[in-house]
Amino acid sequence: MERRTFLRTAAIGGSAAVLGGTLWRGAAYAAPAQPGTGPYGALGSPNANGIRLPAGFSSRVVARSGQTVSGTSYTWHNAPDGGACYADGTGWIYVSNSEINPSGGASAVRFSAAGAITGAYRILSSTRQNCAGGKTPWNTWLSCEEVDRGYVYETDPWGVQAAVRRDALGRFKHEAAAADPVRKVIYLTEDETNGCFYRFRPTTWGNLSSGTLEVLVAGSGTSGPVTWATVPDPTGATATRNQVSGAKRFNGGEGCHYADNTCWFTTKGDNRVWQYNAAAQTIELAYDDSLVTGGAAPLTGVDNVTGSSSGDLFVAEDGGNMEICIITPNDVVAPFLRIDGQSSSEITGPAFSPDGTRLYFSSQRGTSGSSSGGITYEVTGPFRA
């Protein structure tokens, strides 16, 4: 069953119709994505940047760790990680975290309407191991600390307003965040081998200073209905994942992306892409490398995830063979790009420009395998709308 078909069925018939009376099963109701021919075709030979792309696509280097961003006086940070794009008048801004502990933080690059770099600057300093995060509907960047009892910092992509620590979103090993403007919640992943999936309900939508942190509660399988329970103590004096009986465990929560009543998130410990249907309050697997049939799994080392306007998911690999893979709405998974010669790195921070014509991402450790060797790229081409 296609993901869109599943969502339609859930919306029309409710969760009972989708589940057919069965509560939890060991496998998804819809078969997870399987390898096939992607919408952009085969990858070509490595270009000058060592990136294999489909025909019609090109790449450029935007920034390198420890080096001045072209046309600016700003030195790009080490270990670039999660990122997002923001419309800026006629141009746009790309925000990128720094997964360094201590002194992680985040930086931004500003682009003109033609894609020329017009500025670069710091937007968050003196934080720890800022891994992924998420964009809010009110155009701030939630930068997440991937450390024990880590915080979420709300930052200004324009670098004008000071960053604010948002204690109410809980203290745990934060990975990524995704905003759901329909239900007015923020979804949060946790990078622990027995981590959980959370949502935060602000007292006032658009203001993250107060609200309720909840954890997903469900059965032991991979598909079925879920509920949410309040985390009694978001300060994490007792680990948030251990405060609610029946909280569902996920093996190493990573990227998180919301669109069309669905929140997709990845778990690196078992190479899975999950989808939470927020309308029906159910979860299922969108991808599981152990359930791939008829050949080798094209996507391994799942990590950051983003989506395009066409409904395609773009999942970056931490390890694997350094690919960004695409999962289409009809459940086909295929490589979109591959970086050669950087096997000691990982791909991070995929995000589309506001017009959907450019994809930004980083190789966190580049060719050197060191956090000081990070490279941030832009890919331009005929992305489908």
Rank of each mutant, 00 (worst) to 15 (best):
T9Q: 14
G89R: 06
H174R: 13
V185Q: 09
P39Y: 11
D180E: 12
S209W: 07
G195A: 07
T140W: 10
D355A: 00
G206L: 07
G119Y: 02
G119A: 13
L216Q: 15
W158D: 09
G307L: 09
G301Q: 00
A163Q: 06
N277P: 09
N78H: 12
G295R: 02
D355N: 03
E190C: 11
F265C: 00
G133P: 01
C263N: 01
W141Q: 07
D148T: 04
G366D: 00
T380H: 03
A87P: 07
R338H: 03
S210H: 09
D148A: 01
S220W: 11
A27S: 12
C131Q: 02
T300W: 04
N277F: 10
R165T: 14
T348I: 00
N97T: 12
R183K: 14
N101A: 15
Y151E: 05
R272Y: 10
G311I: 06
G269D: 10
R166K: 15
R60G: 00
A42K: 15
S143N: 13
R384T: 08
N207F: 05
A113P: 14
Y86N: 07
F361H: 09
Q281W: 07
P382S: 13
P225S: 14
T235A: 15
R25S: 15
P157E: 14
V217N: 05
K135C: 04
N101K: 13
F383T: 00
R358P: 08
G294Q: 14
A106T: 10
G89P: 03
P102H: 06
R241W: 14
V273N: 04
A162R: 03
V226W: 05
G41A: 03
N261K: 07
G224H: 11
F265P: 01
Q342T: 10
W228L: 04
T367S: 13
R338T: 01
E317D: 03
R25F: 08
T357W: 05
S343K: 05
P382Y: 05
L7C: 08
I117L: 04
F172C: 00
S96D: 09
G195S: 07
E145C: 05
A176F: 04
D331Y: 07
V215K: 04
H174P: 02
A259M: 11
E346A: 00
A247W: 08
G13Q: 10
A385Q: 11
N130P: 09
